[in-house]
């Protein structure tokens, strides 16, 4: 790689991480909008069920995550091989496994505790009553 003393290098390597005023402004404005939408949905109670509000605000959060990843952190703009992206995907996978795995397990651990009704067990085990 370093055979001659002057080498031309494409800007990607040099400027990985550098955005422009336009990209930062776009990211900023989009983030504000997404934050305000989520805030408004919750405080003005624009939802009819728990599941609905959770899906809306989580989707908005994930959207804002990608907005900030792309416009502020410039993920995906580096030259190949894209180790930053690979590492991010791996980390995201572990995060999902740990968070949702723990929630699933911990909720399920109440299985053998006393319940007010037996329907919980029956539903899970498909036991006919």
């Amino acid at each position: 790689m370093k055979k001659s003393s002057t080498v031309t290098i494409k800007p990607e390597i040099r400027d990985a991480g550098l955005g422009s005023l336009g990209s930062y402004l776009t990211g900023f404005v989009l983030s504000i909008i997404l934050t305000l939408i989520a805030y408004y949905v919750v405080t003005a109670k624009l939802y009819s069920s728990n599941l609905q509000v959770v899906s809306i605000i989580i989707s908005l959060a994930i959207l804002q995550l990608f907005v900030q990843l792309i416009f502020f952190l410039h993920l995906g703009r580096e030259s190949k091989p894209r180790w930053n992206v690979t590492v991010f995907v791996f980390a995201a996978t572990v995060v999902l496994i740990v968070v949702f795995g723990s929630i699933w397990i911990m909720n399920n651990l109440n299985y053998n505790m006393a319940h007010s009704s037996d329907s919980y067990i029956r539903k899970d085990e498909l036991i006919k009553q």
Partner: peptide
Amino acid sequence: SYLVWLHHFFTMGAGSNV
């Protein structure tokens, strides 16, 4: 390796699906 950890506490009371 990230998908097996519960086998260290099968007896802690989770249901059969878990």
